[in-house]
């Protein structure tokens, strides 16, 4: 008996289990409450269905959250991602007017990396608090995006560009593959190179890692550049999906959702270990919640309320202190 409880507790310690559980619960709820939620149709060589939609719509959030995982692991934060998304989207659509698609994409990615490097420079070289350093770009960013678009919504008809937001590959939306690619790249970076270890070490303790011969500055620069790149990929997806760039509204408040996704995914905001898989699950959870709310036809007014309650619950479940409330004191003594 004690053994069983102990193994349950060990599973409970694995941070990925909680977001997975939350996602599973939500899915079971959908299975019961929304008929046809899991039905998938196949026509025109494409898959259609709510689940496919979740994959598709979660992509900007998931990709940004993946990048965000790195900086949160560094005990940092990047609240400028929404603005960078808007800048990159504006840049992409702007460059399509007169340049080939690949240049537009490179320009969008380039400006995103540039934004990331700017953030990284403020944080690592000037040593400014991450939240404030990125607050600057959050404030200025939309102004820059508006300068690019000239303050109006610009659009494009380029088929090759919009493919990145609307296209299908092997019957699945292209965005699903983009999530996979970004995830795979970061996963390789984490497990096959020393970079992941360095990030965790710097996030755990800067001083200790410096004495161990790691250079926190360059690790931070690279990480913020990666977030910038992720945000610009998301910006390309969003602008390609709509075929237009809206400097004011694209990616508004996405930074909050991205941070939530990371935290739900089990990465602590106090830095250290990070879980890329958990982040993806967190992002999917948030998007499923949104889709569920839409499908249920919950009145528009109460969406935020539902979201707030779910967020608090998920975070509470993840908290060790909260879980202890439900483990009887006597048993706990035995286990430990």
């Amino acid at each position: 008996m004690a053994n069983l409880t102990a193994s349950v507790r060990n599973i409970g310690r694995n941070p990925i289990i909680w977001p997975l559980l939350a996602l599973a619960l939500l899915m079971i709820f959908n299975l019961i409450a929304i008929p046809g939620f899991f039905s998938i149709e196949f026509h025109d060589g494409r898959l259609f269905g709510s689940v496919v939609d979740i994959l598709k719509n979660a992509s900007p959030l998931a990709i940004i959250a993946l990048g965000m995982t790195l900086v949160i692991a560094l005990e940092g934060i990047d609240i400028s991602v929404g603005s960078v998304l808007a800048i990159a989207g504006a840049m992409g659509i702007f460059m399509l007017d007169g340049y080939p698609t690949w240049i537009a994409i490179l320009a969008a990615l380039g400006i995103g990396v540039l934004c990331g490097l700017w953030n990284g420079m403020l944080i690592s070289i000037l040593g400014i608090q991450p939240m404030v350093a990125t607050l600057i770009l959050l404030t200025i960013g939309r102004g820059i995006a508006q300068l690019i678009t000239g303050g109006r919504i610009i659009d494009t008809t380029s088929a090759s560009y919009t493919f990145l937001g609307k296209g299908y590959f092997l019957g699945l939306p292209i965005q699903a593959f983009l999530i996979l690619i970004v995830f795979a790249l970061l996963y390789v970076l984490k497990t096959r190179t020393a970079f992941g270890l360095f990030v965790e070490s710097v996030g755990g303790s800067k001083t200790a890692s410096r004495y161990a011969g790691i250079r926190p500055r360059s690790i931070m620069m690279i990480s913020y550049a990666i977030v910038g790149a992720c945000a610009s990929v998301a910006g390309i997806i969003v602008s390609a999906n709509l075929g237009s760039a809206d400097a004011n509204n694209a990616g508004l408040w996405i930074e909050l959702d991205a941070i939530l996704a990371v935290v739900i995914g089990g990465t602590s905001m106090r830095g250290g270990r990070f879980y890329l898989g958990g982040t993806v699950i967190g992002a999917l959870f948030i998007q499923s919640l949104t889709t569920t709310i839409y499908s249920l036809g919950v009145p528009a007014e109460s969406i935020l309320l539902v979201k707030a309650i779910v967020v608090i619950l998920v975070c509470l479940i993840q908290s060790e202190a909260f879980r202890k409330l439900f483990v009887p004191v006597g048993k706990k003594a035995i286990i430990e």
Partner: peptide
């Protein structure tokens, strides 16, 4: 917004 209009309609 276009983005939200699309998402709601899709759902």
């Amino acid at each position: 917004t276009r983005a939200k209009g699309k998402e709601v309609m899709e759902a």
